[in-house]
Every structure is written in structure tokens, then in C-alpha cells.
Write a protein that binds this DNA or RNA. Structure first.
Length: 558
RNA sequence: GCGCCCGUAGCUCAGUCGGAUAGAGCAUCUGCCUUCUAAGCAGAGGGUCGGCCGUUCGAAUCGGCCCGGGCGCACCA
């Protein structure tokens, strides 16, 4: 719709510039917007071009608008392709030019939606761009929390959006399978394991107290009996560590699968060491003279790229900091051909972003090739009271428990319905409620209602219908809304904001419910029934496609 | 102290690169089921867009200063 108007304005632009005596102005460089008026009375489409031209021509925007109106009207009259499309052009107060489209041209757009079906919304704006989305990346030291759950829902939905726009998308989970935390995990499990044999064992200071390790210890005992007690302790700890990681990762993958999140790759941190990628990355930095030794440590000159202070890469103990493998990892991402990297992180890492971005720049990539999205935390509420949680004491509600309680659909939808960087209040009672207060059910109900109508009609949906029978305001509003769907996906991708899709679907559902209460779809007037069935089916298509993007089911019955 | 985010209706939040009368949902109140799902619809009330100054045809949006809230400032991960 917008593109069509843009074409019309561009067509008329040379003449308008001539009239304004701006003929020397490059017509491709006039900045103007085409938008949908907020107030319905202002028509179907609108442009602000008169303001832009008024500024350069030093003329009153209203006068410019009137002039544009005349030229545009002539263009519409004289050109066949516009005649059936534009019904009228008007000018409003400060200088807006508004367009009203013909009903039949709107209604006939239903054909496009019906034909494209599950491809409606698809485009190729991202063709040829490889995108890597890294998210969740939880340490395999415990079950996934609701914070991970939100990241999972957001990252996965972003991936689905990018795919619809033609990007080649890779979903990756960075697996921290080496380092201090993993060591602590192994020793904690070792302690739990020994307890099962009546030995007195101490969970290390800062170790993992959570009772889930008791369960894993039981599994370990079942598999290995008492064999770990008979070997050297270092070997026993190594075995316990591997077992713990494998077991916990298995649980993580199960939870993610249930949340409908399937990763393309679990990228092992250990493999960075095995492939000597860290040394290579550091060599490259050294070659560019971006490293120096001081106080026994190796430093990265991140301040050259806008960071507050230089950062240590290798400690005086000889161990790498977390930054070194991370730099190697991101370099490796680029080397695999990805042009666009998106990372989802928790708010506790937000201070870490500048130094990683500095590193990417240092390695010759542009700063905006790496987008770091900080996913804000979620607070659970039960009966208006926040649910207290403490990770350290091992008391938290896991993603699994959340899904058990409210279901996957509600969990995903709630995680997605706010802006990524906004704190999320998650009301457990509301998410469980099967009522009008629950936004998930509202959407799903619209889909179920449509399915029910289509079943009741006992006749297939035909595409050859009399479009002139679709003329009610409620129907035309619905069509206009549906036609926005491809744009919504593009904007959600551009701004990395999946909530826009959720919001849009709610608006679409509102319009459908309204149409439904005012107009019968199935009646004894056959041509009208056919036209409305097509309309209804198109709403079903858009709702289903949108819910698919969110990873929420589209039930036929409720 | 420095840096980042936030402040919009009673509550939770939208508000597209600066646009027209600032919008939803929940909550409150009033109506609507003999016909395709009332898990629905229609309507009402509710606002100093934290404050002040500036930029311009036009500011919730951009800039500056202040007030209030959150977070980050490791040879931790």
C-alpha cells in the first residue's frame, strides 16, 4: 500500500518541483514519509511531503500541500494504474496530504493474502545476509531460569522473523564448558555423590547447593555404582564434572525443546582452546599493536575504541580472563561468514558490551555488525505479590516449573509481549486464567472462532468472489490491518523488537472480533457469504502466521 | 564520581527517523447472548507525557540543566 503511494508521489514529484521553482533539486533526494493516519477520518494513507518541500522552498506548508494536491489529482486522473485505486485526495490543516483509497481496490487485496497463505509476510529483504543469533548461553551448572526463558523466547522469535525476511539464520548456544564455575560444579557433585555413600563431604565454598545436584548424584550412582570411590580423586572429580555437564545440558535441551526452541549449534568454549583460536586472536591483536604487557598481565587497548579503560586479556597468573575466549569466539563467528551478529545478554553483562564491541572493531569489523541486546529481568507475581527468588540458595522458579504451571503458550507470549529492554512483570495467575484478561487467550480465541465459522460454513473458501460486497467499515479496517503485516515483520527485525508482532496480532484480533459481532459471515445470501468467508479465511492466515512467529499455537477449538 | 537505562491514565505498558484530537490492556461503571464460540462486543470516566529552558511550521519524541528510580564501573564468569 505504502509502496504504491510512494510510486505515485515519485511520479508527480518532477512536476511539483517545477511548480515550486525547485527544478534544480534532485527529485530522488526529497525526504518524505508515507504513513497511515492515526485518525481514520484522515483517510487511508498520508504524506508529509508538503512540510519537507515547504521548508526548502521557504513557503507555507499548507500552500505547498494544495499545489501538490492539484498535481497529484491530475496524475491520478491521467494514469490508468491509479484511477481505480485512489478515491480522493485532501489537504488538512498544517499541510498533510491525505489519500482515500477505493473500497474495491482494498478488498481485492485479499486475493494476495489467500494466494500467499503461509508465505504471506515473507520477503527477501534479507536475502544473502547470514545472521547469527546467540542467546540463552546458560552455564551448564543448573536448570534454566525464567530469565533464560525470556531470552529463549525472544531469541527464537527474532530468528523466526529474520527467516521470514529471507535471512540465513543460525541459532547458537555458547556452552561454557570450561573454567572455574564448571570446576565448582564438578566438585559439588562429587560431594553429593560421596554423601550417598554415607561419606562426610563438603560442598566447596561458592559451590552449588541446589538440590538438583542430589538427583544427578543419584543418577551417577545408578550408572557408575561406587566406581568413582575407587579411583584417584582428581579422576573422580573429572568424571563427576563431565557427568554433571552432560546431565544438566540434557535437561536444558529438554526444557528448550518443550519451549519450542531448537538451537542449530551448541558451541563449546572448550573447542576454542582445542583449536588454538584464542592464541590466534591475541596474535592478531598484537600484530595491530593493540596489546601491551603491564603488571605481569596482558592488556587490550580497548580505550582506542571507546571503552572506559583498557582490559586484561591474560591475568598475571597466566590464565585468560573471560574476555580472551570471547574475542576469539566472535572472531570465529565472523570467519564463518556471518555478516550480522546478535547477542542476547542479561542485564548483569551490560557493562561488558563496550569491550567486546571494541574487540570486534579492533579486528576490522564495523561496530554495528554486532548488536548486543540486553534482555531485562522478569519478576514473577502471584496474587499481586512478587515471588522472591535467590539463585545462590538454590531457591528459584525454573523455566520448567513455569511451563508446568502456565503452559508453553502463555509463557512464550508473556515473555514476548514487552519491549526487550523493559523489565517484565509476569503475573502467574493472569497467565493461567482462561478469561478475557489473558492476552494469549484473546488471540487464540479469535483463531478458534474463525476455525469454527469455517467449519460451520460447510463450503470451501473460494477466491473468485464479488469484492464490491465488502464495503463495511469493520471489514475494510480489517483488510488494511492485514496488509500491514509484512511491514510489521520488517520493523520488528529492524528494531529487534518481537513484541511488535504480539501487539499487532492483538490489534488484528480486536478488529476481527468487532467485525464478527456486527456482521454475519454465513448467511443465506450466497455471494455475500463467499466474500466474507474469504475475508475471514485471510484473517485466519495472518493470525496463524503471526502466532507461528511467536511460537504460540493456533488452536482450532477452545 | 563516571557511564548506561527508565520516568506517559489508579496499575502494566505502546507511541514508528519530530507530525494531526497522546493510545491500548487491566481495574471501575453502564449496556448487549432464541441465529456462525459472551474466552466476545459497544459505551463512560480517568492525563501538568517527572520539571524548567531551548531548537521549529510542529516536541511525549531532538539538545541542555535539574528532580526521582534502577543498573554497571574486576587480573569474576
Amino acid at each position: 500500500m505504502k509502496d504504491q503511494l510512494r510510486a505515485l508521489v515519485d511520479f508527480a514529484l518532477p512536476e511539483i518541483l517545477g511548480e515550486l521553482k525547485l527544478g534544480n533539486l534532485d527529485k530522488d533526494r526529497v525526504p518524505y514519509d508515507v504513513e497511515l493516519p492515526k485518525v481514520k477520518a484522515h483517510g487511508d494513507l498520508s504524506t508529509n511531503i508538503a512540510f519537507q518541500l515547504g521548508r526548502t522552498a521557504k513557503k507555507n506548508p499548507y500552500e505547498v500541500a494544495v499545489l501538490c494536491q492539484k498535481v497529484l489529482e491530475n496524475a491520478v486522473r491521467g494514469q490508468k494504474r491509479w484511477q481505480g485505486w485512489v478515491q480522493g485526495i485532501s489537504v488538512e490543516k498544517p499541510g498533510f496530504i491525505n489519500f482515500r483509497l477505493t473500497e474495491s481496490s482494498l478488498a481485492s487485496k485479499l486475493l494476495d493474502i489467500a494466494k500467499q497463505d503461509q508465505n504471506f509476510g515473507r520477503s527477501d529483504v534479507g536475502r544473502g545476509t547470514k545472521v547469527l543469533i546467540e542467546f540463552v548461553s546458560a552455564n551448564p551448572t543448573g536448570p534454566l531460569t525464567i530469565a533464560h526463558g525470556r531470552q529463549a523466547a525472544i531469541g527464537d522469535t527474532l530468528a523466526r522473523i529474520f527467516k521470514m525476511l529471507g535471512h540465513e539464520v543460525h541459532k547458537e548456544f555458547y556452552l561454557n564448558d570450561s573454567g572455574r564455575q564448571i570446576g565448582l560444579l564438578g566438585r559439588s557433585l562429587w560431594a553429593r555423590y560421596q554423601e550417598l555413600f554415607g561419606r562426610k563431604a563438603q560442598i566447596p565454598e561458592e559451590g552449588y547447593q541446589g538440590t538438583y545436584l542430589v538427583d544427578i548424584a543419584r543418577e551417577l550412582k545408578e550408572k557408575k555404582a561406587d566406581s568413582l570411590l575407587k579411583v584417584e580423586e582428581t579422576q573422580a572429580i573429572q568424571e563427576a564434572t563431565d557427568f554433571a555437564v552432560q546431565s544438566i545440558l540434557g535437561g536444558i535441551q529438554e526444557d528448550l525443546a518443550r519451549a519450542r526452541v531448537i538451537f542449530d549449534e551448541y558451541f563449546s568454549e572448550r573447542s576454542l582452546y582445542e583449536r588454538a583460536l584464542i592464541e590466534r586472536a591475541l596474535e592478531e591483536l598484537k600484530k595491530k599493536d593493540l596489546c601491551y604487557e603491564a603488571e605481569g598481565a596482558l592488556w587490550f587497548r580497548s580505550t582506542r575504541f571507546g571503552d572506559d579503560k583498557d582490559r586484561v586479556l591474560r591475568k598475571s597468573t597466566g590464565d585468560y580472563t573471560y574476555l580472551a575466549p570471547d574475542i576469539a569466539y566472535h572472531q570465529w563467528k565472523f570467519e564463518r561468514g556471518f555478516k550480522k551478529l546478535v547477542n542476547l545478554w542479561g542485564p548483569d553483562h551490560h557493562g561488558y558490551a563496550p569491550r567486546l564491541q571494541a574487540a570486534c572493531e579492533a579486528l576490522g569489523h564495523s561496530k554495528d555488525q554486532l548488536k548486543i541486546l540486553i534482555v531485562q529481568l522478569t519478576t514473577l507475581y502471584r496474587k499481586g505479590e512478587p515471588v522472591r527468588m535467590s539463585t545462590r540458595a538454590g531457591e528459584f522458579i525454573t523455566l520448567r516449573e513455569l511451563m508446568d504451571e502456565v503452559g508453553v503458550d502463555a509463557a512464550r507470549f508473556f515473555f514476548l509481549m514487552r519491549k526487550v529492554e523493559s523489565h517484565l512483570d509476569f503475573d502467574l495467575e493472569l497467565a493461567k486464567q482462561k478469561s478475557d484478561e489473558n492476552p494469549v487467550y484473546y488471540l487464540q480465541y479469535a483463531h478458534a472462532r474463525i476455525s469454527s465459522i469455517l467449519a460451520y460454513a460447510k463450503q470451501g473458501v473460494e477466491r473468485e468472489v464479488d469484492f464490491s460486497l465488502i464495503r463495511e467499515g469493520e471489514a475494510l479496517d480489517l483488510i488494511k490491518k492485514m496488509l500491514q503485516y509484512p511491514d510489521v515483520l520488517k520493523q520488528a527485525a529492524e528494531h529487534l523488537e518481537p513484541y511488535r508482532v504480539a501487539d499487532y496480532l492483538r490489534e488484528l484480533a480486536v478488529l476481527f472480533h468487532r467485525f464478527y459481532t456486527f456482521h454475519r459471515v454465513v448467511s443465506d445470501q450466497l455471494p455475500l457469504t463467499k466474500a466474507r468467508l474469504l475475508l475471514t479465511d485471510c484473517v485466519r492466515i495472518v493470525l496463524r502466521n503471526g502466532l507461528e512467529i511467536l511460537g504460540v499455537s493456533a488452536p482450532k477449538k477452545m
